[in-house]
Amino acid sequence: MVTLGDYLIVSGILFAIGFAGVMVRRNLIVILMSLELMLNAANLSLVAFSRFHVQPSGLPDYNAQVFVFFIITVAAAEVAVGLAILVALYRARQTTDVKDITSLKF
């Protein structure tokens, strides 16, 4: 039997994978993809809790699913803006490697 904990563990592992990607990778595009993985891990937790918290009417708690809808919308907007910044950066510096972007480094 699959329990709530199984979904939460899978979600936690996915979040840790995304976090490791942000920490370890130096290509900005891959860092943005890892951010998407982390956002989706949070979505999986929300939907699992939504299904777990069954309302008296016998339906899952749809408030969490509305939150997931908002998160997906904001994530799509974030990706669009992030990639536009990436293109602007590439035009200015001809690189997508975070090691080469050190103007603010002390």
Partner: peptide
């Protein structure tokens, strides 16, 4: 750092009482 974060998440889930319950059936 990512593994430390994962260990913390797993610890919290392990101590969550409702994490060991199956999903209740839907009426509809």
């Amino acid at each position: 750092v990512a593994l430390a974060l994962l260990a913390q998440i797993l610890y919290v889930i392990h101590n969550l009482k409702s994490a060991h319950q199956a999903f209740p059936p839907l009426a509809r």
